[in-house]
């Protein structure tokens, strides 16, 4: 699965790596329509699911209808908007659902049971389990029993696939989490590897895949 980031000038939920990546992307002229064109290009060549990840403002600013139409046309499958909790999600979720796009809700370690129910009710496609109380790329103990228990509780509360992310960096992390979720998200570590070149990026992806059960 590809999580394709649309940069935002003020990414408050992201750690230094993704922040810097977004700043670089904006400085070199990255736009939402550019990201959609990239999604379409990837879709022409690969079968994998594509999730568009961003913050509310650039997406809403583009126009919810237009965004949903063009995202669907590009062949992407879902939206993941980190600063749109279920209370405010409808502005994008509604038009996205009408175009058959999934809406990925996030459940954090701080999420209460009542909130979790609200997030799950608004989610489709899969649910994103935030592994740690912090920003992306923060240090994670993938073997933390509390994390595993949280994932188990989430599993009990939802029939949606569970994908866990934040702080996952290497194959061992993936291996430690693989039995507790249906998927693992790696972001910051891939951005860092990408900066070392395509070969390093390919290497890391291959190594991470080696950590999954079905490898």
């Amino acid at each position: 699965m590809l999580e394709l980031g649309v940069p935002f000038s003020d990414p408050t939920a992201d750690g230094p790596t993704i922040q810097a990546a977004m700043t670089r992307a904006l400085a070199s002229g990255a736009t939402l329509s550019g990201a959609l064109a990239l999604a379409a290009e990837v879709r022409r060549r690969f079968e994998l699911p594509i999730v568009l990840f961003s913050y509310a403002n650039p997406l809403i600013s583009y126009g919810p209808e237009r965004l949903s139409r063009e995202t669907a046309e590009a062949g992407a499958d879902a939206l993941l908007v980190v600063d749109l909790p279920p209370e405010h999600a409808e502005v994008l979720r509604g038009p996205a659902s009408a175009r058959g796009l999934g809406w990925v809700g996030l459940v954090a370690p701080t999420t209460t049971p009542a909130r979790r129910a609200r997030v799950l009710a608004a989610s489709s496609g899969f649910v994103y389990a935030v592994s740690l109380t912090g920003v992306t790329g923060a240090p994670l103990d993938p073997s933390d029993p509390a994390l595993h228990a949280g994932l188990a509780t989430l599993r009990g509360a939802s029939s949606l696939p569970i994908v866990v992310g934040f702080g996952v960096r290497k194959a061992e992390d993936v291996r430690a989490l693989a039995g507790h979720a249906d998927g693992v998200v790696v972001g910051s570590a891939l951005v860092e590897a990408g900066q070392r070149g395509p070969a390093a990026l390919g290497e890391l992806v291959k190594s991470l895949r080696g950590g999954t059960l079905r490898a």
Binding site: L84, H88, T110, T111, R115
Partner: peptide, 14 residues
Amino acid sequence: GGRYVAETLMPAVE
């Protein structure tokens, strides 16, 4: 207005 924050912060804001 509203509460446009990451889920991690929502419980604290609530």
